[in-house]
Design a protein around this nucleic acid. Structure first.
Lengths: 157, 157
DNA sequence: CTCCCTGCAAATCCTTTGCATACAG
DNA sequence: CTGTATGCAAAGGATTTGCAGGGAG
């Protein structure tokens, strides 16, 4: 795809979603179209800075929230409570390593012919009478390499 | 139960869990023994202050984390990311109202003869090869009264 | 007597806000 | 033109940390 064709694609995408065009917004969308998903506002800011895009950190925060409201990206909470953003909006769960922060995408688990998250939501609504959001399932654990490090430390003691 | 009997019970509880006795620690344990579960560090600090117990906020933070490590209370994340503490350590899920913050305790849902959280954990471990924590399932939604308020606002427009 | 606990204030982290200016539609 | 987006710096809330003094075991 040629450069200006992609520009037009991104412009169109913004227009379709009722968003005004701006250079920072384009830079962020372009980033997500090409690179890492699962990034924090600060890391995105730094990554864009490295590419020579000097938008301000508050603009990054603003646009991440704008893009999330438009349904173009998804927000979820990292192990230390920071907001992370994912450009893959198809349903999946997140598993994050408590030690190194690495993220693993878990496929949806279906039980009794229904995605687990939906099952949970219905259980909660039936039990409580509340109106319940479908939960994002964010798990934490230790990735294989951090487990190895932990085990080695345990042996040393 | 007489006053000094309860004091001894609390002292014993601390000793059993390898905790040193201190007045602030006693005040916090006594609070959880008698009153609200589901409280934040700040609210606990204010509640104790009202009772005439003037411990510092940092002491409250410290002791909540100490008590959690000892397994006497459980920490979970509120809708705005704040840490909440629950003195009910038996297994259950939390459902919190996004609007008023009210918390509902959901009983554990069992599917295929297994608690949902365990099912999730095993799914995650099998899929990823990581070592996964059993997830605390914290849902959010709107309680009945906040739903009513929302509906009324929607009609007004 | 030693180590853990406390209180206070300052520090830190992540995120939001206020405001004047710039730019898209 | 009108309204939204930007950059900067300052504010904000929640939690942690450094340090000197106090109390438990």
């Amino acid at each position: 795809m040629k450069r200006d064709e992609q520009d037009n694609t991104l412009r169109d995408m913004m227009k379709i979603h009722g968003l005004r065009y701006s250079k920072p917004r384009e830079a962020i969308l372009r980033f997500f179209a090409r690179r890492d998903r699962h990034i924090s506002a600060e890391d995105l800011y730094l990554a864009l800075k490295k590419e020579g895009k000097n938008l301000s950190l508050s603009t990054v925060y603003l646009n991440l929230s704008v893009l999330e409201n438009a349904g173009l990206i998804r927000e979820f909470a990292g192990v230390n409570g920071e907001a992370l953003y994912d450009s893959n909006i198809s349903p999946h769960y997140h598993l994050q390593c408590k030690n190194c922060g690495d993220i693993y995408d878990l496929p949806v688990l279906t039980t009794e012919g229904m995605p687990l998250a939906k099952l949970l939501k219905e259980h909660a609504e039936t039990t409580s009478g509340w109106q319940v959001d479908e939960p994002g399932l964010n798990l934490r654990g230790l990735c294989s390499s951090c487990q190895a490090v932990n085990d080695a430390e345990a042996n040393r003691k």
